[in-house]
């Protein structure tokens, strides 16, 4: 599904390297968790995979479904099934959730040669998806993320994921800002959406999300690299020993600066 090969990236025009050679392989049907302290490059990694113009890939490659996507615009990557649930979802005043989602859904459908839905069919379609994240139908007619609480914004991201049915979902700190009930609802939603044909990459600081969504693989990022990978037990080990443990480990191996 996704393969990162020695991926290097820096902030466009500033020459500050943030990703310093990331290697990662995600197969379909899998859930991966990427953990790491603030500033380790986790969120940048998600944005680079999605094609954010703020970052420039200076080395390595991103292979998605067997092909390099480095030359693709963000919207083309979305058409190919890449979805990013934003850490800070953006407000778009005056554009309703329904308008945005219908536009998204139909654009993606058209790019894949699938049938587009008219407004009435689309309305039926999205109403089913609301239940998945226990969202009030009022949300549909509200402007995208405008005046939403932090938790509502995060829930809205997962709702969008449910509507667009991506094949690769990158969830950037979807758990932050959620209270315990919302965390459960969102996690259950993600679990229901995940199947044999898609993959999920969770980016998180904390182990608590992983109580609800059980990853197949856990990776730890530090200084722009993945310094350790393991099974779900790695998350517990991290929780117990803290990131300092890995930092010293990385220094011994001479991998991180």
């Amino acid at each position: 599904m996704l393969e990162l090969k020695n991926l290097h990236a820096e902030v466009e025009g500033e020459g500050i390297e943030i990703l310093k050679g990331v290697n990662l392989k995600v197969n379909k049907g899998e859930i991966h968790a990427i953990m790491g302290p603030n500033g380790s490059g986790k969120s940048t990694l998600a944005k680079v995979i999605a094609g954010h113009p703020e970052y420039e890939v200076t080395g390595g490659d991103i292979i998605y479904k067997g092909e390099s996507i480095l030359e693709m615009d963000p919207d083309e990557r979305a058409h190919a099934g890449v979805f990013l649930a934003f850490q800070y979802p953006v407000e778009v005043p005056g554009v309703t959730n329904t308008t945005l989602l219908r536009e998204s859904y139909n654009t993606i459908a058209a790019s894949r040669g699938r049938e587009e839905l008219d407004p009435l069919e689309f309305d039926d379609y999205i109403r089913e998806k609301l239940d998945l994240v226990e969202m009030n139908p009022d949300f549909l007619e509200r402007s995208v993320n405008t005046g939403f609480s932090g938790g509502e914004k995060k829930r809205n991201e997962i709702f969008q994921m449910a509507v667009l049915q991506p094949t690769l979902s990158l969830l950037d700190e979807t758990d932050s800002g959620l209270d315990i009930d919302a965390l459960r609802i969102v996690s259950e939603g993600i679990n229901k959406l995940h199947g044999e044909e898609d993959a999920v990459v969770l980016i998180t600081h904390y182990q608590r999300l992983l109580n609800y969504i059980v990853p197949d693989h856990v990776h730890v990022m530090l200084g722009g690299k993945i310094v350790k990978s393991g099974g779900k037990e790695l998350a517990f080990e991290l929780e117990e020993k803290g990131y300092d443990w890995l930092e010293s480990l990385a220094k011994v191996n001479g991998e991180a600066k």
Partner: peptide
Amino acid sequence: GEDQIFYLQQRGISEDDAISLIVNGFCKE
């Protein structure tokens, strides 16, 4: 902002359509 456009592009909408959508939202009233 770049972030607003990127957000909509990430949802599959082209850059020009994203601007059009943002501007239409702005002028809705």
